[in-house]
Nucleic acid binder design. Structure first.
Lengths: 239, 239
DNA sequence: CGAACCATTGATTCGCGTCAAACCCGGTGG
DNA sequence: CCACCGGGTTTGACGCGAATCAATGGTTCG
């Protein structure tokens, strides 16, 4: 199984690729790099010069405010192009860090630039992946003004669907090796409150022991979260 | 002054355009359409087939939850491509509405597709505009978990800078013809609380009468908002 | 066995929501 | 010219959800 497999799986969840496109991606994706957990790979103000393709593990995009509060604005699962937007933004407006030990591949910006010059279809698929990134931001923005239970329920639904798309979740079960403090940084609430929220959800909809989560009643969880996976755009269509 | 002027101004805030690119845009942008205030132009589930370029007025992207709560996930000012992401998403996951009377131009998806096939540079600039859209979402996400005063301060700073970039704001003054209820839908708080927040800010940092806003002390407002315009990417660079 | 890290619990405070009423102002019509 | 209306703004009283602060368990690992 080659290195690009997960990326191709992610792209092909939204459209089909030609053999030559797959071959091109294979040439472009070089050797993987291991990064330990809790390591910042990019800082705000950086001009990275390459994009990060996540192969395994979980990464996050974060922003720290003056008072030291860290807020996680995005969580990335294997197959995600974590900072594809840096190709166009140039200067980073946030940090990127590993939440767990990760394997990544760095793709130089000039490589992506070449693709945009000669591969309109691949370009659109890359563009699409940043657009979906934005759609996820919008969902998080909406849940942000809802009660914490609903917020957490939505996060779990989303992560389950995204992990399942890359075969890292099944039967309502998945691994989420995050501390409650990290979850708090995702939801924008305090760790203490995350704990209480998890406890209230343990009563009826989830099992959550250590890093192992089991969704006991998907329908109820999704209903409470008002979760509709449409925004994740997991439908093959010509783009 | 031609119709594309505002669009070109917006794109050229981030990179320079060649004459032939400007000419192409001029050919692509057809006659404007007037839309009355408070009109929904797109609904969730729609497959629009064209993108909306805003020429004048304010538009919003909204999502309504089961209980009828409307949340505004984005505000658009003249020059913005309101729903450029629909070109790749195909199916809309949210609604689009005018907040004030607006003039718009509809650009058919096939037209944009043609640009992506033959105009890599323009394509990257369009892509960039959706990426900045995402950056704005991230900022809103971060402020969402902050006290309402800081949230509102940030919104005012952002709108001032964005309006100024298209010459619709100057000297700390701009028009914002929104009701407090609409502002509440932007911030995800109640109209009542918006009112109290505005009042507390009137004491020291802003004047706000009807649709007219004057920022009395930019530095103080920006400091309180922790506002750093970097994410709006208003710097000319080759992209 | 202690150190470090994480999860959990309790007590108290505070920002914001909720509900309901009052007010303000431009527009309309008698 | 004034009564009346309606949409938006403002005010007050009250309750709840989440923050805060501080302490206590539980596990893993040197």
């Amino acid at each position: 199984m080659s290195i690009v497999t997960t990326l191709i799986k992610c792209l092909e969840a939204r459209d089909t690729l030609t053999e030559s496109e797959k071959a091109l991606l294979n040439d472009v994706v070089l050797e993987p790099v291991s990064v330990p957990a809790k390591t910042e790979t990019t800082w705000p103000g950086d001009r990275p010069g390459r994009c990060t393709l996540l192969l395994s593990g979980l990464m996050a995009r974060t922003k720290v405010s003056i008072d030291g509060q860290k807020r996680i604005t995005a969580i990335h699962v294997p197959g995600d192009f974590v900072d594809l937007h840096s190709f166009l933004l140039h200067e980073m407006d946030h940090a990127i860090e590993t939440l767990t030990p990760c394997e990544v591949v760095y793709v130089p910006h000039p490589t992506i630039a070449r693709i945009t010059e000669a591969q309109p279809h691949l370009t659109r698929l890359f563009w699409l992946s940043t657009v979906i990134d934005g759609a996820i931001h919008r969902e998080w923005l909406i849940t942000a003004s809802k009660p914490s239970r609903q917020q957490l329920a939505h996060l779990l639904c989303e992560l389950y669907v995204r992990l399942k798309a890359v075969d890292l979740a099944a039967d309502g079960k998945f691994r989420l090796p995050l501390t409650q403090e990290t979850v708090a940084n995702v939801l924008g609430i305090t760790p203490v409150h995350v704990n209480r929220t998890i406890q209230s959800m343990r009563v009826d909809v989830i099992e959550w022991r250590g890093a192992d989560i089991k969704i006991l009643d998907w329908d109820r969880l999704a209903e409470e979260a008002e979760f509709d996976p449409a925004y994740l755009c997991l439908k093959q269509e010509p783009r």
